[in-house]
Simulated assay, not measured.
Amino acid sequence: MSRPRQLRPTLRAVAQAAGVSTSTASLAFSGRGPVAPETVARVRAAAEQLGYAGPDPLASSLRQGRSGVVGVVVEGRLLHAFRDPFAVSVLDGLSQVLDDIPAGMLLIAQPAGTPERAITQLSATALDAVVFSLCGPDKNPAVDHLAARGIPMLGDGSPVDPRVAHVALDNRGATVALGRHLTELGHRRVAHLMMPLRHDSPTGLATLDDVAAAEFTDTRDRARGFLDVFGADDLGAELEVGAAPRLAQTAIPDVEQGAIAARLLLDLPEDQRPTAIVAQSDLLAMGVVRAADDLGLSVPGDLSVTGFDGVELPWFAGTLTTIDQHGLAKGRLMGEMLRQLLDGQRPDDVVQPTHLRIGTTTAPPVVA
């Protein structure tokens, strides 16, 4: 025979054992009320004797109508997010505000090729809100599922859906600022190293058609900003670059893949080789620096390099020229908008400010 299930001690039982009301016992545990220290000690002694560990979190969430959990949907593997210092800084800022609300954070990986698989985990989890973070696709099947459940949603520019509030970024305008900085230095032969354009993007050279078919908002808009300065703003037009490749993309936006793609752009005769590369993230920019070093090119003497994010790179001796999008502040801003959503308000969409940070990786070209 199986043992009978042992009932969980209740707060009422603790109150009776301590000789106080249930409300007084509750205040003694929460620390939010005027309860004498000796009464608190008596209540806690009774709780210890009965084996009472505190209010039942499930019962508390049912009373409040909240689970105390916010889901954070991350595109692809969580491993890649944790390796990206910008992603970590955004999550850090978000968690600071969630701690104050208070609410917990549940990270949910959404497979890039089969995003609908995340719906299974979402449907089995009680969530107060969901954040789509870290450069997801324009369309996400989870939006319909969450909207049907009445769960408020927040994104960082994607998914593109009116039911999702956003902390967006002017990716195109920020990349134009990088391009203008390079043109002012005298660069004309400039290449672009992109994050994945699609969930199945290979690391390698890319075309204008690839950019036009991009499913990731950030990648597409940064590419368009590059084309505004160095190519055609009409994605169907040809770039005036002769035979030299000017666009490359990566399957994963990390240093290793960035170096592989950058070599394809750099391993050319000197008169065709770009004098500068605009990378779509700081990690990709570090890949460019690594590739340049492998090919015997100096930065910025032979090649100027720019990034995008503004993360700390303690292993890099120089200072990367980049767009600083203030990851920690962005995460906190997302947290404050999330607070409004949890209070039943719909905040206005916000465009996160950025600024061009000029470092030691850009200089005038030796040969214009």
Rank of each mutant, 00 (worst) to 15 (best):
S60V: 14
A292Q: 11
L106C: 12
V351L: 11
A214G: 07
A165R: 12
V43G: 03
D99G: 11
S133F: 12
V97L: 13
M334G: 00
L197F: 12
R42G: 12
L247R: 01
T319I: 01
P364S: 10
C135R: 14
F86R: 04
T361Y: 07
T217S: 08
S21E: 10
L297K: 03
G236A: 11
A81W: 12
L333N: 02
G173L: 05
V278N: 06
D161R: 04
A87I: 03
G93L: 13
V74R: 06
S304E: 02
V164T: 07
L268C: 08
A13F: 02
S304Q: 05
A251W: 04
D349R: 07
G331S: 01
V160A: 06
P365L: 04
V289R: 13
R263N: 02
D170W: 02
L134V: 11
S281V: 00
D349Y: 05
P196Q: 14
P159T: 07
D138H: 06
Q280F: 00
V14D: 02
V241H: 02
V255G: 02
D234F: 08
L154C: 05
A329N: 01
S61Y: 04
V20H: 02
H199Q: 13
S21A: 14
D309I: 03
F29E: 01
A279I: 00
A276T: 08
A18W: 08
L106R: 13
D200L: 06
F216Y: 15
R263C: 03
D234N: 12
D56Y: 04
V43T: 07
L356V: 05
R273H: 10
D84S: 15
E270M: 09
D324Y: 00
P253C: 04
D170C: 07
W315I: 13
A47K: 01
D302Q: 05
A109C: 06
A232R: 11
G307S: 05
V211W: 05
D138L: 11
G225I: 09
E336K: 01
S67A: 15
T203R: 09
Q249N: 02
Q121K: 08
V20L: 11
G76K: 04
H355L: 08
P37S: 05
V367R: 10
P152Y: 01
D282M: 02
A317N: 06
P9S: 02
Q249H: 03
G136C: 09
A251L: 05
E116F: 10
A41F: 02
P9N: 00
R290S: 14
L50A: 08
T203K: 04
M105R: 13
R117Q: 15
R198H: 15
Q280M: 02
S30K: 10
L205H: 07
I252V: 15
D84K: 12
D282S: 02
D294H: 09
E184N: 12
L134Q: 14
A46M: 09
H166Q: 15
G157A: 09
M153T: 04
T322L: 01
R180T: 14
S281K: 00
T207F: 04
D200G: 03
V211L: 13
R32D: 14
L356C: 04
I252G: 00
H181G: 08
D138I: 08
G318C: 07
M1S: 14
D324A: 02
G155Q: 11
S281W: 00
R224N: 03
V90D: 13
D293R: 15
Q249G: 01
G93C: 13
Q16V: 14
G301D: 13
S133N: 10
P159R: 03
T22Y: 09
Q16S: 09
D348L: 15
G68V: 05
T114C: 11
